[in-house]
């Protein structure tokens, strides 16, 4: 296959699978799963330091060094534009000026559905402040286009609710988004298993971001490997161009002539 580049914020990546680092049982499992996924962009969260804990306790950045991965700090758990902006300013300071970030502003703790009004407001400020914003949003094509127009470097619509594993519930909306946008469209949230990731890529998504589908699998490392292959397979199928669906008419794969018993009709 010729070079199939995937560019975000001016940087070229070879893996179209982006993974989160939450919900693993320990750092060893986190590292093993991420290595198996071959992801190059990995999300992290920003949280208050636990004051008074063992000062020598290992840090996530020790096992996932910024020299090896593109770290994507997120705003998970933020419900207002202001909280999200403050969190990402802290992230930029924490990561020595790193500007690529994942913006998500949630609507309520039950659904974790994005609050697109707050998301748009935060995106405007962050882009103005020089952040390269990859933005989590609903699968609303109008909102997705607005986020691109604001200057986000990637738009990341949900497949279904965060952590639900329900798969792609509205492929039609994802297609509407992809038809309208120039920046990479990455399905973020809702992928449950490898076929979901493959379907997202077959639809023409530029990448898939997931966390729970890997971390909550019975064998996270094996699932990480499955997701890597599913994303690659889905991408190749998209590039290959699938055969058209033929409704109500079959077409044999083998020659119809030279049968030992000629067809009667």
């Amino acid at each position: 296959m010729t070079q199939d580049s995937f560019i975000i914020g001016g940087k070229t990546y070879s893996s179209r699978l982006l993974v989160g680092t939450g919900k693993y049982k320990d750092f060893a499992e986190t590292r093993a799963a991420i290595e198996a996924s071959a992801a190059e962009i990995i999300t992290i969260a920003i949280r208050r330091s636990n004051i008074g804990q063992n000062p020598n306790e290992p840090n996530l950045l020790d096992i996932l060094p910024p020299s090896k991965y593109t770290l994507l700090p997120n705003t998970a758990g933020c419900y207002t534009a202001d909280d999200a902006i403050r969190t990402l300013r802290l992230a930029r300071e924490l990561l020595d000026g790193h500007s690529l970030v994942k913006l998500e502003v949630l609507g309520d703790p039950q659904s974790l559905y994005p609050n697109v009004v707050e998301t748009i407001s935060a995106a405007k400020t962050l882009v103005k402040e020089g952040f390269q914003v990859m933005v989590y949003t609903s699968d609303d094509p109008i909102i997705a286009k607005q986020l691109e127009d604001i200057g986000c470097v990637a738009v990341m619509p949900l497949a279904s609710l965060i952590g639900s594993g329900m798969g792609i519930l509205n492929p039609w909306n994802l297609q509407l988004i992809m038809e309208r946008l120039q920046v990479p469209v990455i399905v973020d949230a809702g992928v449950g298993t490898a076929s979901d990731a493959a379907i997202a890529m077959e639809l023409g998504c530029h990448g898939v971001l997931m966390n729970t589908a890997i971390a909550a699998a019975q064998n996270p490392v094996l699932m990480a490997s499955a997701m890597k292959q599913a994303v690659e397979a889905g991408r190749m199928a998209y590039l290959a161009g699938r055969m058209p669906k033929k409704f109500y008419s079959a077409s044999p794969s083998s020659p119809t002539s030279g049968m030992i018993t000629p067809a009667t009709k």
Binding site: T21, K23, L60, N211, A215
Partner: peptide
């Protein structure tokens, strides 16, 4: 004051 670190997240 807020003092933050990086932790696992999705």
């Amino acid at each position: 004051l807020e003092i933050v670190v990086a932790v696992g997240g999705g």
